[in-house]
Design a protein around this nucleic acid. Structure first.
Lengths: 345, 345
DNA sequence: CTGAAAGCGCTTACAG
DNA sequence: CTGAAAGCGCTTACAG
């Protein structure tokens, strides 16, 4: 029913092969026939059938993106949206489509991915997060399937990854508080199975070490990327006999929970406790007070991930692809939540 | 290189046709051969090639989702993410993939969609928003391509749509303020080219009318779905000689901007001005004060859109599809921002 | 219940 | 510079 290469060929008085060659800008085709065929394609409203093309070319011009399962799904809506926007923008620009997939368990995630991969539905995959033992990463790595990880993998060192230097980022945030005069600094971390939590924790410790500041076990709290976690962490800290004067918080959303709790209890930020967190989402400058936050360039991360993946797909020499690690620069944005020098005691 | 239906057939000692029939659970296949073939498929790691299947079946089992162009892109990250989560969840459950596409202008949007549609890449499309004169809707409607609109279209009454009853929702919000004793109520609207802005405005007027309250031209402000718009609206209202005591605000994000502005100027919410807004995003209960908001079930909207689209794709009788309109129920969530009765004057 | 054959719409050596 | 032919991996009448 829809117009095919044969219809165009017939009307143009050439063979289907020729039409196909015009389509792919084959060099050895006469300018005259090329023009004629193109005119007729336009006239007849011809559009190449992508499926047929894929079937023979063994390439789909599609990238697969695996959405995190519900547990982490709550985790920062705006983070993932920004990431996906960056991914889709760059993919479309390069003529690639993006196929979204999700599973409601790790098991289902693997099934979804393997359907896409084995079914020849996608040319490469992007993972939006990095867990410590991720079966999806295992699967892709085992199958030598082109893949890019946003974040980094502990096990699979040679998967291509696009990441923030989270160790440095956390060190930067911590150093800022130290420079402001804080000596008692706590850390609110994310789920320990996420690599990002570990990296930020490490940077935090690093900065404390440099400054010969004490690393206080009691001043470390782990949680989810949820406001409730921040709320709980806050209540834990504020009940401590000796409490920190500043906090490094793994994510802005978590800081919102902390701010809310402190507000309810009548504490003031940054006077009673100073806060720096990560990701600099749109709302971070809108909270009361506005949050100091490390901007990690989320859109840019997504954009770079697409770019790296497409490059990997098109690269023939596999040696060039081993152990690629793209670092997107971060930037500490200072706002009111950390702009206070504590009195010495 | 990958294992095909022929390989399986050879190993099983049957014809490719038979393997294909086993795959599709054809009724007239003997249990014995079916079992044998299935065992061999598993053993050889067979996975059907989706492209080949699509080519012959003329169906892709993919839904296309068009991301809004940058202008509206900012518009409510978390809104779109929730919507997409709902869409993907339901699509995957029904065995459909979701293909994302975007353009950086209306022109590019249409091109992206037509590539997907004419290229046979998708079986149907979901639009995430409704503009007043949308070329993408025109395109889909003109081509009689299965499509679902989240929102509603003024021109194309017979496109399938999934929507909130925004008129009622806005009326509910407004009535609540009236019941609290407010007589001077303002409205902060969104871009006038979006249908949702118009519908909510209409509900607002309706509720005022019912209560014989004056509709004050000065108390209506249009803006974007951005915090800055809220900030500006706030400053406009607060400089009025006679200002409203309560506001209905088209979106929570806009309310955040209003809250911030009022806080800076030292006004109190809800005492100086009460606020109700829409969408009930995750952060609405975290603001200071927590926002009263109409929960429109965003995830549910996405979920329903997927469901309706898949139904439309699978429905043979086109008469059944005309003028379908699915309404997802809304619910006014009361929080502190509107819980104050103004003194009579 | 099963097989041989044709065909989906394209590409790409091979030949000229 | 162009065409005829084979083939990508599947499905589906048609026959038996």
């Amino acid at each position: 029913m829809s117009v095919t290469i044969k219809d165009v060929a017939k009307k143009a008085g050439v063979s289907p092969s020729t039409v196909s060659r015009v389509l792919s800008n084959h060099p050895r085709i006469s300018h005259a026939t090329s023009e004629k065929v193109k005119a007729i394609m336009l006239e007849m409203g011809y559009h190449p059938n992508i499926m047929a093309k894929s079937l023979v070319s063994k390439t789909t011009h599609s990238l697969g993106v695996i959405l995190p399962k519900p547990a982490e799904e709550l985790f920062l809506n705006t983070f993932f949206m920004e990431l996906i926007r960056g991914i889709v923008a760059q993919a479309n620009r390069s003529g690639y489509d993006v196929v979204l997939s999700s599973g409601s368990s790790e098991q289902e995630e693997v099934e979804a991915v393997s359907r896409l991969v084995y079914g020849g539905r996608i040319d490469g995959a992007i993972l939006l997060y990095s867990r410590k033992n991720d079966p999806v990463v295992d699967f892709l790595s085992r199958n030598h399937f082109p893949a890019v990880l946003v974040g980094r993998s502990e096990q699979h060192k040679n998967i291509i990854s696009v990441d923030t230097d989270n160790v440095q980022a956390a060190a930067d945030a911590t150093r800022h508080l130290i420079q402001m005069g804080h000596q008692r600094i706590g850390f609110v971390s994310g789920p320990p199975e996420l690599v990002v939590s570990l990296d930020r924790m490490e940077g935090f410790k690093m900065a404390l070490n440099e400054a010969n500041l004490e690393f206080h076990k009691d001043w470390i709290v782990e949680g989810e990327f949820l406001q409730e976690s921040g709320y709980r962490a806050m209540s834990f800290f504020m009940n401590l006999p000796e409490r920190p004067t500043a906090l490094v918080v793994v994510d802005d959303i978590v800081s919102f929970g902390i701010l809310r709790g402190l507000h309810e209890l009548g504490y003031k930020v940054p006077e009673d406790i100073a806060i720096v967190s990560f990701n600099n989402i749109a709302l971070s400058e809108l909270s009361t007070p506005p949050l100091s936050s490390v901007d990690i360039g989320i859109y840019h991360l997504g954009y770079t991930a697409s770019q790296a993946l497409i490059q990997a797909i098109q690269e023939k020499d596999p040696d060039k692809l081993v152990h690629q690690r793209h670092i997107v620069p971060h930037r500490l944005i200072l706002r009111q939540s950390s702009m206070f020098a504590p009195s010495r005691n």
